[in-house]
Design a protein around this nucleic acid. Structure first.
Length: 238
DNA sequence: AACGGCTGCAACCGCTTCTCC
DNA sequence: GGGAGAAGCGGTTGCAGCCGT
């Protein structure tokens, strides 16, 4: 088939964004809204790839973005969510109001990964020791810890955190995907503080399990999802 | 002061998934 | 149902600044 490149690479700016470029992008999106990223640069008069515009907007220019100063609580949550979800950065970011997947990914790679490894491994290295060793040693990649979801196989929208149904552990990924569509990330972020509190208060994340339930449990899963929707409705999520 | 290695982060790349027709 | 384009995602890269020697 052959994929058409998202943009012609010729004559396009690359690398760090300048203040005027940011301004153009922000103004354009204020006027026309997000979306149509492929056409956006041309329409806005930017010499950038559409992907680049999207990334810049989502990670830096979007209203409500927090930069830096990741709190201890956020750090703890990142660690716990990573333990649960693996490298599902967009999912993790969705639970951290104002944080982006890119920032969390970077923060994990530069700060938390060392600590996570240090806690787990039999030998502890200082940051420099660990990183220099990581770069030199070409051992096979370590097998993922038990309970960590592999990053590649499934898309994030197949996973949902359903506080009210957690204790029953009967949620299938397929059914969960349906509820995820209804309970979108944007809806969650409108309820950022509430949902975060709910998330932290109402369930023990370490015990959270994602199950591939057999067909016989689909009905029960649907009941749980319905119950969840009712509760979410009552809590003002929709 | 100069140099080299390390670190952190912004941005890019390529693949997967979604959506529309 | 299938193809094509659009959007999303995670891994990787590039580079400026920091730090130790």
């Amino acid at each position: 088939m052959g994929r058409r490149p998202c943009c012609s690479k010729e004559g396009l700016n690359r690398g760090p964004w300048s203040a005027p470029e940011d301004k153009i992008l922000v103004n354009y999106i204020k006027l026309h809204g997000e979306g149509k990223w492929r056409d956006l640069p041309r329409r806005a008069g930017l010499k950038r790839c559409g992907k680049s515009c999207r990334l810049r907007w989502l990670n830096y220019l979007r209203p409500g973005i927090k930069r830096g100063n990741i709190s201890v609580d956020e750090e703890d949550l990142i660690i716990r969510l990573h333990k649960l979800l693996g490298n599902r950065w967009s999912l993790i970011a969705g639970r951290l109001p104002g944080r982006t997947d890119n920032e969390i990914k970077n923060y994990w790679n530069s700060h938390l990964r060392k600590r996570a490894k240090g806690e787990k491994g039999s030998r502890e290295y200082s940051g420099k020791q660990l990183l220099s060793k990581e770069k030199k040693i070409t051992s096979p990649p370590p097998s993922p810890p038990a309970g960590v979801v592999q990053t590649k196989p499934v898309r994030c929208n197949k996973v949902v955190i359903i506080p009210q149904a957690l204790d029953k552990e009967h949620v299938t990924q397929k059914k969960a995907a349906e509820s995820q569509r209804n309970l979108s990330c944007s809806a969650l972020q409108q309820q950022e503080d509430n949902s975060l509190d709910l998330l932290l208060d109402n369930f023990d994340i370490d015990n959270f399990l994602l199950l591939e339930a057999p067909n016989s449990e689909l009905d029960q899963a649907q009941l749980n999802i319905n119950e969840f929707h009712e509760n979410a409705l009552g809590a003002g999520y929709y």
